[in-house]
């Protein structure tokens, strides 16, 4: 009974405040000297080293991203025609998501109010957020940074995107809608 009382008193002391902690753990402090204040302090040298590591990370990040972009630009994707399932029954002034030319490339098919089909890569050309079709405004909109694209051409209407959406060529064959090719747009300033 007395031992449990001692334990509870010790716990109470330990949890009370910092000075009590040091007092309660005095035997351990003698064997393992440990100063909390010193432990929490970051020296200028340590901070400089941290900044150096950050600098290295930022450099390798930029280099990696640029390398990947350059490699992706050289990679040639074989494009073949693909049937877009469900496009025939698509209501006027509405959209349908599909993948083209590979499963990883999301795309969006829009059937405008006049019955015409338009398809675009779904990645916004600003920071790759998925664009969606706004029925009310009849345009493609990016919810991330409020960019908008023309539904008939894919051109930028306003916002931060630097170039038009990638256009997917669409053909209607025997009443079925087919995607037949994908054209990547380039920036208007020619960069």
């Amino acid at each position: 009974m007395s031992s449990s009382k001692n334990i509870s008193e010790t716990i109470k002391r330990v949890l009370s405040d910092e000075s009590d902690v040091r007092e309660a753990t005095a035997p351990f402090q003698a064997e393992f000297p440990y100063e909390r204040d010193e432990e929490a302090q970051v020296t200028r040298r340590e901070f400089c080293n941290f900044l150096g590591l950050t600098s290295a990370a930022l450099f390798f990040g930029a280099a990696g991203f640029a390398t990947k972009a350059a490699l992706d630009a050289r990679e040639e994707v074989s494009v073949s025609a693909a049937h877009i399932g469900g496009a025939e029954t698509l209501a006027l002034n509405s959209s349908l998501n599909f993948s083209y030319p590979t499963e990883r490339d999301s795309a969006i098919l829009i059937r405008t109010a006049d019955g015409a089909y338009h398809a675009y890569g779904q990645k916004c050309t600003h920071l790759s957020c998925p664009v969606y079709y706004s029925r009310d405004h009849q345009r493609l909109e990016c919810p991330c940074h409020e960019g908008a694209f023309d539904v008939a051409t894919g051109d930028v209407l306003y916002g931060p995107p630097p170039r038009a959406l990638d256009v997917i060529e669409v053909e209607v064959r025997d009443g079925q809608v087919w995607a037949t090719g994908r054209n990547t747009s380039t920036p208007k300033d020619g960069g």
Binding site: F65, K68, P187
Partner: peptide, 19 residues
């Protein structure tokens, strides 16, 4: 460098490969 990284990402997505 942080600004340069942001510019790199922007340029890559915009296909401004020359920069």
């Amino acid at each position: 460098q942080l600004w340069i990284l942001a510019a790199t990402v922007d340029a890559a997505l915009a296909r401004h490969y020359s920069v």
